[in-house]
Every structure is written in C-alpha cells, then in structure tokens.
C-alpha cells in the first residue's frame, strides 16, 4: 500500500488506463498543467499533446466531441474543470450522451467518462460550489459514481474508463488533498458496490463523498455517547448497491442519509426512497436526512458555513432517529 492524495490516486488511474489502452485520451481546460486541482498534472509529458488535449473554453464542444469520439471507437475522459460548468454542456450530457445508445436501438456504445470536480468550500461562491450529482441520477442513461477516498477514486475511475457506457465521476474538491492508502497492484472497483466505511450496530449512516468523512467524525462523537453508527458509502449512485444498504439497515433498523447538496429532489431523496422500498419492515424510526439547504451557496464564510452540512448535523440526526 502507498499513501497518496485523492488527486494523485486519480492521476494514477488515468496513467494506468492510458498506458493500457491507446484509445483513452483526456480533454479539458488547462489540463496540461493540471489546473486547478492537479489531477491531470504530468500526463502531457508522458502521453503527449495528442492524448492530453488542452481545449478552448468551449464546454459544449468539449463534451460533444467526446461523444463523437466515443461513438466511433475512442475512450475520452473529460475534465469538467468545475462540475458547475456542465450546465454549459447540458444538452450534450442530457440529450446526446445519455440517450444515443438507447435511441439508436443499441447500435453504438458511448464509452466516455466525465470527471466532475464539485462541491462546497473556501468561499468559492455560487458558481463554483455546487453539488450537482442529483441532477444526473434523474437522467436515464448515465452511470454516476462518487468516490470518498483515494483508493475508491482510483478503482472507480479505472472501472469507469473501461465501462462501455457513459460514466460521471463526482470528485469532491475538498477531498483532493485528502490522503489514504492505495494498493500497489492494479485494483478495479466495480460500479454498484457499496463499502462499509465503519461497522456499527445502532444506526446506519448512508453518506457520499465529503459527507462520508463527516459521518466518520460523527460516528466517533457518537461512540463516546455509547451509540454505534455504521457508515455505508454507496460509492456509485447509478448503479446502486441496494443489497448492501438493505443489509446494513436489517442490522441497525435506523437510517440517516447524508449528502452535501440541497435537500430537495436530491440523490439523498432517492436513497431514502430506495431504503423505504427495500427495508420498510426493518425500520424502527423514520429516515432522517442531512443535506444542504435549498439555497445557492453564498460567498461569505459565515453564510457558507450555514449552508455546509457537517459532522455535528450528522450526529444530531443519528441521535434523533435513536430517540
């Protein structure tokens, strides 16, 4: 095992897959120097400018061209720069990428990856802070994963690149500098495989990305109060590991779902429905949710903090469902 940062683990995954498969290329704004998060740093030196394409600021063409290339035999990995700017390529994602295979009656594969640096933090303001994974689970035809650790990031990105379908990888920008162990040998983590990040018996916290870490902190706090929380990370939202979620709930009978984006119409809302559907008879309390408020992310630090769900909020929700 090597201890590496989340950004470096993603970089490793890109290198491994680019070495393995000459059809893989990366494209995005400022990716040769790896700006702003360092994920693509050094790739141009190893793979050359033909496979590390610094694009103009033309999101629709970046994403659309990736689909064109994917339908005709290449395997593009798009760096969205900030997930927020996917709005500038929304038709390409929602209508073209998500639907082409289906509407062509299965004639073509669309093997492409959209890397989505997202999330709240450091007063980046309303156009650079959004957690938009929920938008995409509402679009049939997209696979969506959301790794919380360097190991998961590497293993999921590799799987995403090999997948025959479009996969979005949501990378929380607050995690890029987080460190964790990554195996020396190659590791692929299948989509649709949840991971229990901490075992417990009293309450299941289903959390994604940064909120996994908030949930782990909350579990520490709760342990001191004699409450044993299990933290389950779905790792991918589409496909979803329903069995793993249900297995945990069968043990704990109480559920808290934690995410960062706004409460309404979100991934967490979908997860709550899935838990209800799968585990209604197991539940001893209504499901509690932790999410951001339904406002854009404000700039000023106290306002941003007021909109940032944290470990305290997770712990409070756990106490609530255990009352």
């Amino acid at each position: 095992m090597a201890t590496v940062e989340y950004a470096a683990a993603l970089n490793l995954a890109l290198r491994e897959e680019m070495r393995r498969d000459p059809r893989v290329y990366v494209i995005g704004e400022d990716i040769v120097l790896g700006v702003p998060f360092g994920v693509t740093k050094g790739l141009a030196e190893e793979f050359g400018p033909e496979r590390v394409l610094n694009a103009p600021i033309s999101e629709a063409a970046i994403v659309g061209s990736a689909l064109g290339a994917a339908m005709t035999g290449l395997r593009p990995v798009v760096d969205m720069h900030f997930a927020d700017f996917v709005t500038c390529a929304m038709d390409e994602v929602a209508n073209q990428i998500a639907k082409s295979r289906y509407m062509f009656g299965g004639q073509v594969d669309c093997p492409l990856v959209l890397r989505m640096p997202y999330g709240i933090g450091k007063s980046a303001g309303g156009h650079h802070s959004n957690s938009v994974e929920g938008w995409f689970i509402n679009i049939p035809g997209l696979k969506v994963c959301i790794p919380s650790t360097p190991r998961d990031a590497r293993g999921l990105l590799k799987t995403a690149i090999r997948d025959p379908d479009p996969v979005m990888v949501f990378e929380h920008r607050g995690l890029y500098r987080a460190v964790g162990e990554v195996p020396e040998e190659e590791e692929l983590i299948p989509l649709g495989s949840a991971d229990v990040k901490r075992a417990g018996s009293d309450v299941t916290v289903i959390a994604t990305a940064r909120m996994v870490h908030a949930a782990l902190e909350a579990a520490e706090l709760l342990a001191r109060e004699g409450i044993s929380a299990e933290v389950v990370d779905p790792r991918s939202l589409v496909p979803l590991d329903r069995e793993a979620l249900a297995g945990s709930v069968a043990k704990t009978h109480r559920v808290v779902i934690a995410e960062e984006g706004p409460m309404r119409g979100s991934a967490g809302a979908w997860l709550a429905w899935v838990v209800t559907e799968e585990c209604f008879d197991d539940l001893d309390a209504p499901i509690a949710r932790v999410a951001g408020p339904n406002v854009p992310i404000p700039f000023s630090p106290p306002l941003e903090a007021a909109c940032t769900p944290d470990s305290e909020a997770v712990a409070a929700a756990c106490r609530r469902v255990l009352k």
Binding site: I57, F85, P298, S300, L303
Partner: peptide, 23 residues
C-alpha cells in the same frame, strides 16, 4: 456578502454583475 469578488453587482450604476460563468 452573498456574491464575493466573482459575483459583485451594483444595479445602482447599471452594473449587472461580474460572473463566475464565462461568456
């Protein structure tokens, strides 16, 4: 305090906003 540098706006002088989204 909701905007910050990238989102300043001052309608009183017809300044309809800086913008975090290019173009």
């Amino acid at each position: 305090g909701k905007g910050g540098s990238m989102h300043i706006a001052d309608a009183s002088v017809g300044y309809l906003g800086a913008n975090g989204v290019l173009t």
